[in-house]
Amino acid sequence: MAAPAVGFFLPATQAIMNASTLDKDVNSAMPPGDFAIWIFIYAELLAFGIFFLAYAFTRAHNVELFNASQLSLNRESGAINTLVLITSSYFVVRALAAIKRGRQVFCVRWLAAAIAMGGLFVAIKLAEFHAKFSAGISLHTNTFYMFYLSLTIFHFMHVLLGMLILGFVLFKAHRGHYSAEQHAGVETGASYWHMVDLVWIILFPLVYVIR
């Protein structure tokens, strides 16, 4: 999936350059970055949204099972991961702010920090999965675990993709492809990452806390 991402960022950035010299800070028409990413963002949100509702309504028919199985979840790693992603998103905002002022080096550093936080999320999540799988829990154990595992694994894959995208943006920033005047690529990658954060913001309370 990185290939199409590469394939449209380059011409897309060119298109944005050609299309507008709008000051994006002053109530511009379009959301930040390449509009194509926003189509994905809304589609992803739709998919996750449906999944969340499926979880919630299934829980309504299996309240005791869900309450009981939920107790086995590691709430600490869930909470820490929420903080990690929120912070990582914050770092991305800082990176964008930096490039908007032409501070390329700072942009690179903030992006690196954001990706590092993403790596931390991945590590914590892997440990959490490992613990569950070692305890013999799988997709077939019961309906709660089926949802818990598929939701968090599905989200996990999006974290990985997001990190890849940020990595690509970092690479380009490092090479000096962005400036105060044109940094649509940074906005594009940032928007996707914020979506990944947003999804987890809903997921954590829903799966780990609500009972």
Binding site: M1, P4, G7, F8, P11, A12, Q14, A15, A36, I39, F40, A43
Partner: peptide, 13 residues
Amino acid sequence: EVIEKWLYVIIAM
């Protein structure tokens, strides 16, 4: 370029 971008988004979906 416009058409190609649409194409990528469509096939990704």
